[in-house]
Amino acid sequence: MENLLELSNIHTFIGQFHILEGVSLSVPKGSIIALLGRNGAGKTTTLKSILGLTPPRQGSVLFKGEPIQGRRSFDIAAKGIGFVPEHRAIFRDLSVLENLRIAERQKGDFERKEQFIFELFPDLKRLIKLPGTNLSGGQQQMLAVARALVPDNELLLIDEPSEGLAPVIIEQMMAAIQQLSAQSTVLLVEQNFVVASKLAQQYVIIEEGQSVKHGRMADLVQDKATIHRYLGAA
């Protein structure tokens, strides 16, 4: 299988702190791969390192076989990587429509994806003119995901999509991620192991800034010892 994204031994510092001390992972095309680990293990930093928001000092990041480490964030994003940050990162002063439009990389991106986006998130269609600040937490999270779908992103980095959402909304969000993975490869950071295990086919575990284990999600679900050791979940 061809790898869409390949990280080899990346080291990232934030200020003087050595956050990532060697993360390697490969994301095969057309899959959902979950990045697991405890709080502070370096999952979000891994996503940010891919995007160059916290550029890695060492190691290589290959996207479609091309090295992208050290490039500027907006160049990396424009290559076709969409990022859905944690904490519902929408623009609260812009309307729903403006939030979607601003994500256009080419004119007409939104028109082409409109139907697909509103099938995934029918709520957004109803709220199209509302300012982002008036949306509920779940709606904001949907908008944040929808925004990453507007341009043709081959890879989506989704950070904690279920965080702080009601169970029924989580179900909806999971269904949406499942559907959109038909079009884009997804690298998913998820604290909620139940959610992650249902969505992802593959996993990578990060522990203290290092990728320590990877494999098929189906195997991990059986492996209670590993789950307990690295994720603290039962």
């Binding site: 928001l53 812009l94 403006e98 439009r101």
Partner: peptide, 24 residues
């Protein structure tokens, strides 16, 4: 205008504008 909307986005959160692919 679209340019103005990006300016508002930068005010709110420059990082988010960057990762949408805008040279802020």
């Amino acid at each position: 205008s679209p340019t103005g909307r990006v300016c508002i986005a930068i005010r709110e959160n420059e990082g988010r504008a960057l990762m949408l692919g805008y040279n802020t």
